[in-house]
Design a protein around this nucleic acid. Structure first.
Length: 403
DNA sequence: CTTCCACAGGAACCAGCGGACC
DNA sequence: GGTCCGCTGGTTCCTGTGGAAG
């Protein structure tokens, strides 16, 4: 029984090409051949790094802008052109691209840089300074020019400080031959405050701001993608207008815009429609939010889930203490040893960062000072996500029965 | 104006893991 | 095989604090 329905799904997936022509160009990591409205930024970056072709060290560059404003795409674009030119003129340039948020830790950032430079290093076990040494030695020995792109650099600095950045900016003083230039990319304008002034001045020898796309610009970008991604005349103008307007109102995020268009297409496909209209865009907007939330909820560690349930079970008298009381109740019920209040306070902050709860702190005078944890998502969503979990099922029942 | 609650949140530390080096 | 490394996910201990009650 089941196998036939799965077969049906696959068969439909293979045959239903009447919506999409090339789905891959609608993925958010796809870098298009032409980057619209970024000519100025491309030109400046290209000019800044061009000395490298004469064997001189280019200035470090810093790119700022909100998510989905094309920073990463522009950087990748310019560097792919650079490496083509360098190869054709047989100039010895090595490029490294690291997303520091993806990498996660200082060690992994350095590990990826080393790998991009063709240095083999173990993925754990060495000290940070050892990896630095190996990278520097390699640069000097092989006498090459290296450019390191550090994407989402604000993450690295906020979580691990600017030590690594400091070492990298000073790298050239240590190198006897060869050099390293840096290209930093940050989504957060205020993150400069976290930097040591010396690092900041060195890092932003050249600075570039990426403004959000306007609705009109998004429309052009989307129209281009739709042209290659969808079958002709499938995507209506009304849908295009709505998608651009929605994305523009959300900080001009091109990535979100493309996601919106792709998901709308998938919805139309699943419903067997011939066209993508405004209705599918609206549904897509809901679905994206919905999916993001349930994914976040699902991947939470057990104790965080219990904290979410604890917050959910509280109707009034919201305070960190109340959350903790309920939480330890759940733990006792499940025969788990509870974490400390300090840790729960931290977990509440993490959950608030994920947008699952809000946790503003308020002071009530003699009643003390506390967070005011509040659920930001409907209880029904939590229920549907947690219902499959046999452990949480029990707790869920417990909440329902006590009201 | 002072007191004092109920926490916030920083800092240091710890255990356990996976792994490299010599 | 002993020593060192970084990272995670905690604990313990601590000082700091907004503002209603007194």
């Amino acid at each position: 029984m089941e196998s036939t329905s799965v077969d049906d799904i696959f068969k439909r997936a293979l045959t239903s090409t009447n919506i999409f022509k090339d789905r891959s160009v609608l993925r958010s990591d796809y870098v298009p051949d032409k980057l619209y409205f970024r000519d100025e930024q491309i030109r400046i970056i290209a000019e800044t790094i061009s000395p490298i072709l004469h064997g001189a060290r280019p200035s470090n560059i810093f790119l700022y802008g909100k998510t989905g404003t094309g920073k990463t795409a522009v950087a990748k674009y310019v560097f792919s052109k650079l490496s083509q030119t360098a190869i054709s003129k047989s100039i010895f340039v090595k490029l490294s691209y690291v997303n520091t948020r993806m990498a996660g830790t200082e060690y992994r950032v350095l590990y990826e840089i080393a790998r991009d430079f063709g240095i083999t290093v173990p993925h754990t076990g060495l000290s940070i300074s050892e990896i630095f040494d190996r990278i520097f030695k390699s640069v000097s020995k092989e006498n090459f020019s290296g450019i390191i792109t550090l994407d989402e650099i604000d993450f690295l600095v906020k979580n691990h400080g600017d030590d690594l950045l400091y070492e990298l900016t000073r790298a050239n003083e240590k190198l006897s031959s060869g050099f390293i230039s840096l290209l930093g990319i940050s989504n957060d304008l205020t993150f400069k405050d976290f930097l040591d002034p010396r690092v900041l001045s060195s890092l932003s020898e050249e600075e570039l701001v990426f403004p959000p796309y306007t609705a009109e610009e998004l429309k052009v970008i989307l129209a281009e993608r739709i042209k290659i991604g969808f079958q002709p005349n499938v995507f209506t103008d009304a849908a295009l207008n709505l998608a651009s307007a929605l994305a523009a109102s959300e900080h001009g995020d091109a990535r979100r815009a493309v996601d919106l268009v792709r998901v709308a297409g998938e919805i139309a496909e699943r419903n067997g429609l011939k066209k993508v209209d405004e209705q599918q865009i609206r549904e897509a907007l809901l679905k994206i939010d919905q999916d993001r939330l349930s994914d976040a909820l699902k991947s939470l560690p057990l104790h965080s889930k219990l904290v979410v349930l604890s917050v959910a079970s509280l109707k009034e008298s919201l305070s960190t203490g109340a959350v903790y009381t309920n939480y330890s109740l759940f733990c006792k019920r499940l025969n788990l040893s509870e974490l400390t209040p300090r840790r729960i306070s931290g977990l509440l902050n993490e959950l608030s960062m994920l947008g699952i709860i809000s946790a503003s702190t308020v002071s009530l005078g003699r009643q003390g000072r506390s967070k005011r944890p509040k659920l930001l998502i409907p209880f029904s969503t939590i229920k549907t996500v947690f219902l499959n979990d046999p452990i949480l099922f029990d707790v869920l029942n417990m909440i329902e029965s006590t009201g």
